[in-house]
Design a binder for these strands. Structure first.
Lengths: 115, 115
DNA sequence: TAATATTAATGTGTGTTACACACTATTATA
DNA sequence: TATAATAGTGTGTAACACACATTAATATTA
């Protein structure tokens, strides 16, 4: 296994799990999948479309999101997702976990934070 | 799937990947596995021993760590791990990725950061 | 003191889960 | 007619949890 492979596999694991957080953060208003990809990409988070679509479906099956087809517009049919109230609840919980975890890890990797 | 299951599975994914970072952060000096578990636990990171041991071996097989048995002491034999120079390099790279990623995600989940 | 339980320390094996990657499919638009 | 927009499926991989095994030292109790 080469250096680049090693690094990218570790980076992959690092990003893993944070995708849900990123996605949920964008769903205050209804957004469709393809738009999420570009939107997140613009903000520095690169998510594969073929990762995102199953993720959205999974979150919907868990009751975190609901979706609605929009076939009215003069464009390809789009499936808009938004958080349910349950999803909002979940989002706040994992957001807290994230922030806690970040501060713990940051204190581990940068012991000379203070002053 | 119940609420608690959903949450803990998401949290699991969130923690996943950060374990390597946490572990590497503790290996400036040689440390043995069991000690890592307790040490990280004290600092707020709970890692299962049966997660850690394979992880350490994996990192060693990738050249990130080297190990050395200590059978001299009047205790059970301990396998001490420390970063190689390559490991140090990798650590710095993924640390940077982590910090970048954290700031991106934090800006996503807390749009009202400034001032 | 002897017997036993607990802690310290490392290890293996299996199942689950999410992500990447490759692919298909359809409709607008350039 | 080709490319972008939009959604989907299927397979492989890799890491983690969980359960279990093993040995040696220490603590507890008989």
């Amino acid at each position: 296994m080469e250096k680049d492979e090693i690094i990218s596999s570790i980076i992959l694991e690092l990003r893993r799990g944070t995708i849900i957080l990123s996605v949920l953060s964008q769903l205050d208003l209804p957004v469709y999948g393809y738009n999420l990809v570009t939107q997140l990409s613009e903000k520095g988070i690169s998510v594969e479309a073929n990762t995102l679509y199953p993720l959205l479906r999974r979150l919907e099956s868990q009751g975190i999101l609901i979706s609605q087809w929009d076939t009215e517009e003069s464009t390809k049919p789009r499936k808009y997702y938004q958080k349910t109230q349950f999803g909002e609840e979940i989002y706040n919980i994992i957001k807290k976990h994230w922030l806690d975890n970040v501060s713990i890890i940051n204190s581990l990797i940068e012991p000379e934070v203070s002053l």
